[in-house]
Amino acid sequence: MRANVQQPHAPQDAQPILWVRDLQAHYRTSHFGVRRGVKAVDGVSFAVRRGEIYGLAGESSSGKTTLIKSIAGAIRPPLEIVGGSVEFAFLPGYGGLHRAPPVDVARIRWRHLSYIMQGSMNVLNPVRRVESAFVDFAYPHIGGSRKQFEQQVVAHLARVRLDPSVLAAFPHELSGGMRQRATLALATICRPDFIIADEPTTALDVVVQKEVLGMIRSIQRETGSSVLFVTHDMGVHAHITDRLAIMYAGRLVEEAATAEIFRNPLHPYTRHLISSLPRIGDDTPREGLGGSPPNLADPPPGCRFHPRCPLATEICKREVPAMLEADTGHRVACFAVNQGARA
């Protein structure tokens, strides 16, 4: 444990279950003798509390996928953790799943930590029946007789409104929505403390998406799990997350309660994101934002948003703004905002 790292805002009422401290994850490649480093995650700190859905929003090159991989311990070259730590309350002392012994990791997988991914086919083996996934992943943790286990699975499937008959089906026989609900059931049957949800509804049609989101929410309420919910879709965040962090070019730029972010976005990037969302019934023209997200192999110095930022000043080009609390529970990394708050 390092004490000198700045602690993210933690409320009195709920203890964090996941601490990410100053995490730096880089891709290092050497191709035909030329070394390249992509700073996909560059100094990210946050904490997820027990029983909350913590949203993470970011664009395609913002490093959110890398952040998820680092948290899940899926570190394979060329990805490297260069600095910082990731710590779960149920697996303390290692500073990251990738540093923990495989025995411990196997023990906590599914029981304490589970996943819902975009492609359910990653979890459900296409040539085996859905049932076998439950037996393989969940049975070792739940134990008891097979009869009891089956009853438990059927009861749990009812929560996501799936008939027991899906257990005998092969994944390809189910629709996309049913498959994603089956993976949801699989991820939650052990009542894990922490669920990593990576774009779980992105591939679904809108009607099904809303239904699945509702199920994730209700099961999360029931089991009290924490969820790290990653998606680029601000509508989904608005709908399901309790708190929301916005990531831009490998760093967090803003974090607050979701309603607060939508009501009062502070960072210029977040403000643009929120204000550019088209809404039905609203005919006001939306302004576009110039420029493009930076290439992480060669990011701009200082604040990485400064080339596109309407508020950019000299300091933004030189120094990296820290994540500071602008309001209670509302952190933002922007010189313009933080100066204004202090003045």
């Binding site: 490649t29 035909f32 003798g33 030329v34 390249r36 060669d298």
Partner: peptide, 11 residues
């Protein structure tokens, strides 16, 4: 893509 990387032309 790999060629550009190797020669360092990519910007």
């Amino acid at each position: 893509r790999s060629r550009l990387w190797s020669v360092g032309e990519a910007s």
